[in-house]
Write a protein that binds this DNA or RNA. Structure first.
Length: 303
DNA sequence: GTTGAGCGTT
């Protein structure tokens, strides 16, 4: 049989899409579903009765009406409530687009060697994807590099990749992050950061990074200095962060406790609180022995 | 002429 297409649309008066039939003249439901995800059948308005009619469906095969498919527009059936779900998914992704999550933005590049030039940056980052812009921030008077800069990519995927790893540039490890100006306090800021309590001093940032990699992309590890028995670990995905909260994890034989990273407080409150402990914690005394089970609130004081 | 956590003169 010659190639045959039937016209299918989501609603009766919408622009139809042509869907191919099989050699025997039937149409596979799976073919329809490929274009209309979630579809469970077809219906059409009968030219004679002017009523909507269902298309016969047997084991995933849609059978043509008596007089063939003709030039009618067939309307997609969705399971009860499923249509709404599809719309919600579309809405969710639309919101995501609107929030700009898919757009690229400048990334700050921290830790650049003093000698690194914009050409060096361009050459390096071009290995990840198309580069729109690079900057090396310099002292206006002397022209010396301030040791950081910015980069902007065309593709969001490139940006994601670049943020997710460290970079060896001209002999130094550098970090690429979203600048503070871009990760603004506007959003509810689903925390991508967790508080790691009961850390011991021999747990290095690198070891923490290596350990937490198993749960997802680690974007940052922060260990306060001098030693304060906790750390912050940031993930690329906020769901990874929240999924870990409340867990007790064993790292190098050390049981650490994961909890929410409270937002930073002002420096005034921080120093007041720190003062109560004198100058730090002389010996490696665990915070948990001072404030059992209160690690997360301590994060707020010292964050 | 130095430095090494940070946040961008326009």
């Amino acid at each position: 049989m010659a190639e045959l297409y039937i016209r299918v649309a989501e609603e009766e008066n919408e622009e139809p899409m042509e869907i191919p039939s099989e050699d025997d003249g039937s149409v596979l439901l799976s073919t329809v579903a490929a274009q209309f995800p979630g579809a469970c059948g077809l219906r059409f308005r009968s030219p004679v009765s002017q009523c909507m009619r269902g298309v016969r469906l047997v084991e995933g095969i849609l059978h043509a009406p008596e007089n063939g498919w003709g030039n009618l527009v067939y309307v997609v059936n969705y399971p009860k409530d499923n249509k709404r779900k599809m719309d919600e998914i579309d809405a969710a992704s639309a919101v995501k687009m609107k929030r700009g999550d898919m757009k690229t933005s400048d990334l700050i590049v921290l830790g650049l060697p003093w000698k690194t030039t914009e050409q060096d940056l361009k050459d390096y980052f071009s290995t990840f994807g198309e580069v729109i812009m690079v900057q090396v921030k310099r002292d206006v008077k002397t022209g010396n590099s301030k040791g950081f800069g910015f980069v902007r990519f065309t593709e969001y995927e490139t940006q994601d990749k670049v943020i997710s790893q460290r970079h060896m540039i001209d002999g130094r490890w550098c970090d690429c992050k979203l600048p503070n100006s871009k990760q603004g306090p506007d959003e509810p800021m689903r925390s991508r950061k967790v508080f790691v309590g009961r850390c011991t001093e021999d747990l290095s940032a690198d070891e923490l990074r290596q350990f937490f990699m198993q749960y997802g992309e680690v974007t940052d590890v922060f260990i306060p200095k001098p030693f304060r028995a906790f750390a912050f670990v940031s993930f690329a995905d906020d769901q990874v962060a929240s999924s870990l909260c409340g867990e007790d994890l064993i790292i190098k034989g050390v049981s650490v406790h994961i909890s929410n990273a409270e937002p930073k407080h002002g420096s005034r409150q921080m120093t007041e609180r720190a003062g109560r402990f004198g100058n730090g914690f002389g010996a490696q005394v665990h915070l948990s022995s001072i404030f059992p089970g209160r690690s997360s609130s301590l994060a707020a004081f010292f964050g």
